[in-house]
Design a protein around this nucleic acid. Structure first.
Length: 264
DNA sequence: GTAAACGTCAAT
DNA sequence: ATTGACGTTTAC
């Protein structure tokens, strides 16, 4: 395998090869390599034509883990047992990577040198997982360590999860929250340490808006009247920030305002 | 353990 | 869109 050539690529490789935190592992029970191997096997077993995006988003029954008997009301998804298809964001890194690749966002255009290296390894490994010419994931794993692994901002945005977003600083696009993104993912994946979580942390009152500064309940609004059953703060004390809808986990901000500007 | 209150769903 | 109810999280 040919090593990274630039400091940037070295850093990227280091980030990608670093072990996940335990909590992250918990929320990503299928490692990238496992996933890719499985995907390879699946796509070969199913003869071929690589599984489409549709297939990824709607896995076969065999790919689903068995459904658990519900212990609580069906209206809520249980906060534990998040698996490959149940991530808070609905999409795991590996899936995101493959989806991006299939969409052409991850440009897998190896240099002849790298390509030779990859092929050589595959021959040695005897995996028999040759690319099918459609940009399949077959060769993805070796890419992680090779010099042409695409350092695509979108991938990092996806990795950043909940709070991760891309910002533009002085015209150049930077990556914000790569480090913090891990924290965000951790927080989202499990807030109880029980392996899961509904995927949301409670937000806190800003403490600065007018309602937050209010002291004392009105005792007249519905929230006050139904305090016992409603579990809600007085309407007039409800933080303005909390009134707004929480941001989604995949919000990405680009200067152009486009979701995937590199696809344009 | 308990109280407060956020998040979400369902009913209206 | 608003409201009520309830599960859940968080702070104490």
């Amino acid at each position: 395998m040919s090593g990274p050539s630039s400091p940037e690529q070295q850093r990227a490789n280091r980030i990608l090869s670093e072990p996940l935190r335990r909590s992250l592992k918990r929320s990503h029970p299928c490692s990238l390599s496992e996933y890719l191997n499985n995907t390879n096997r699946l796509s070969h077993r199913h003869s071929s034509s690589s599984m489409g995006v549709r297939g990824l988003l709607h896995p076969t029954a065999a790919q689903h883990r068995p459904t658990h008997p519900r212990q609580t009301k069906p209206r809520r998804a249980h906060s534990s047992n998040i698996d490959l298809w149940d991530s808070p964001s609905g999409l795991h890194l590996a899936h995101a990577a493959e989806l991006l690749m299939r969409a052409g966002a991850l440009t897998l255009t190896p240099t002849p040198r790298d390509q030779a290296g990859v092929e050589g390894e595959e021959m040695e490994g005897g995996s028999g997982a040759e690319g099918d010419g459609t940009g399949c994931v077959a060769d993805f794993l070796p890419l992680l360590g090779c010099s042409w692994f695409p350092l695509n901002p979108g991938l990092f945005a996806l990795m950043a999860g909940g709070g991760g977003f891309l910002t533009s600083g002085g015209g150049s696009m930077g990556i914000a929250g790569v480090g913090e993104g891990v924290e965000v993912l951790r927080g989202e994946s499990s807030s109880t340490g029980g392996g899961g979580g509904a995927g949301r942390r409670k937000r806190k009152r800003c403490g600065e808006c007018v309602p937050c500064r209010r002291t004392g309940n009105c005792e007249e609004c519905s929230a006050c009247r139904n305090r016992k059953t409603g579990h809600q703060i007085c309407k007039y004390r409800k933080c303005e920030q909390l009134k707004k809808k929480a941001a989604t986990g995949f919000e990405m901000v680009f200067p152009s305002g486009a979701a995937f500007p590199w696809l344009q």
